[in-house]
Design a protein around this nucleic acid. Structure first.
Lengths: 250, 250
DNA sequence: CGCTCGGTTGAAGGAGGTCAACTCCGGTGG
DNA sequence: CCACCGGAGTTGACCTCCTTCAACCGAGCG
């Protein structure tokens, strides 16, 4: 884990995510357990790889603040971004399935993460079945997102893929309360990231994104994004995600 | 659910999958619960769509025998195969996350499925935390496979994608004991399926597959597949999946 | 003030898509 | 028994979307 243990630990009782109202409620007992489950808090900076492919760290993490992404690299150096991570997203579970994590995690912004010891995951399932169910929910939800990306990369044109990615990221940022009153969201994703996520070359990503911006679909400036014609983007992308239940947070 | 309730129910106590040794062991108590959890057994034929996109059926299913695949269709009719399903694979969980299943399930062969009532899933987590953990395992494993597909479709050439798919399907079939002594496995996947799974056109899939066969990499005949140079295929595909722990079965 | 990083743009080439035709084979019905 | 049909596989010709290569710009920064 290429990250620093934070001097100031956020108490789960005062978790800023929980109080935001974006996540499902928990009982006091569950919150007690989550607090005891949390081993420590770590942070890192944009560009830090906090989990390397193949690495085993024996810890689960929840992203507490900031943006990150999950990726896999091929031997020729090409890398595929599997999905982007937002506050509340869990990572590190898959390393239990085989030997070492099949993917890496890199930060897009300065970020804080809550670390949980994998050893105690079993206690979680036994003592708090609801939380066990929530872990399943989070994994199933992440799979849903990867499914959507696969559909994009397999079946959509470059223009559709980019439209879809913009809409998707905007919506996810909005869900965790990142949208400003004026419609801007922070947007730490550069064109190389978009290209890696969509299976496109950097150059083609640039030209296509430029065209969408010229069409007045969106605006990206100063690491922020605003959608000007969200409905047209939805139609272009042929992307209509069903609304989700309130997501759990561990 | 476009499928028939089977007249002859397989008892979990005599589950042919369990006795095959390909799956992790369960305690007698867990097996009792699984038996009580199983609501009925259904079957269908090749080509049957047993779960439609958007449908809500309130049931989970485990594929008991046969092959199937999970897919998503776009409004232009293009469809992406997300992953192939083998005996022991669970499906139908995602419909809990939102309104209706975000994907469809179609059979590639005649198949039997065990149906479980989603309502009782909660009992499973509460009464048998280990089984709850197993459900998470299954979902996380499926996500792993979708991740691999996404890497393929996003970053690999057509030749690599096809090599990867052949190797992957061969290995999965082998894991559930479908490999014959002479090295053949049943192979109910046609070129259109491969194209839909890999984000390629049917024509290009055909030409590339033909070339690999001419290179002596593999042989497909009579709905069976045999790998002649598995090591070369692995290298071509740049695909080295880590071995998994013995998978759970519910 | 030069360097680097991210974005932008043009030109040329190639991997893969589209269109169209043909074969083979099993099923089916006259 | 055989003509017909539809599905799956095969192949060639052409085209286009996207990649690759290359160069340039502007902003931030040491």
């Amino acid at each position: 884990m290429n990250a620093i243990v934070s001097p100031s630990q956020t108490l789960c009782y005062h978790c800023p995510l929980r109080t935001s109202g974006a996540f499902a409620e928990v009982t006091p007992q569950q919150l007690d357990f989550i607090q005891s489950f949390k081993k420590r808090e770590v942070w890192g900076n944009a560009g830090d790889i906090v989990l390397r492919e193949g690495q085993t760290i024996g810890q689960l993490h929840t992203l507490l603040s900031g943006w990150a992404f999950r990726f896999h690299t091929l031997s020729n150096g090409n890398r595929q971004i599997l999905n982007f991570l937002f506050p509340g997203d869990l990572f590190g579970l898959q390393e239990q399935l085989s030997n070492g994590s099949p993917y890496g995690i890199e930060l897009l912004t300065p970020a804080r993460m809550c670390a949980f010891s994998s050893d105690r995951l079993w206690d979680l399932y036994r003592q708090h079945p609801q939380l066990g169910y929530d872990v399943t929910w989070l994994v199933a939800h992440e799979e849903l997102i990867v499914d959507e990306n696969l559909v994009s990369v397999g079946q959509r044109t470059a223009q559709q893929r980019i439209a879809m990615l913009l809409v998707h990221l905007y919506k996810r940022a909005e869900q965790v309360g990142m949208k400003q009153a004026d419609g801007w969201i922070p947007f730490p994703v550069n064109q190389q990231h978009m290209a890696d996520a969509l299976g496109l070359s950097l150059v083609h990503t640039n030209k296509t994104l430029r065209k969408l911006a010229d069409m007045g679909m969106h605006e990206i400036a100063g690491n922020r994004l605003r959608l000007l014609k969200p409905d047209v983007l939805h139609r272009l992308a042929d992307y209509y995600a069903a609304p989700l239940r309130r997501r759990p947070l561990i």
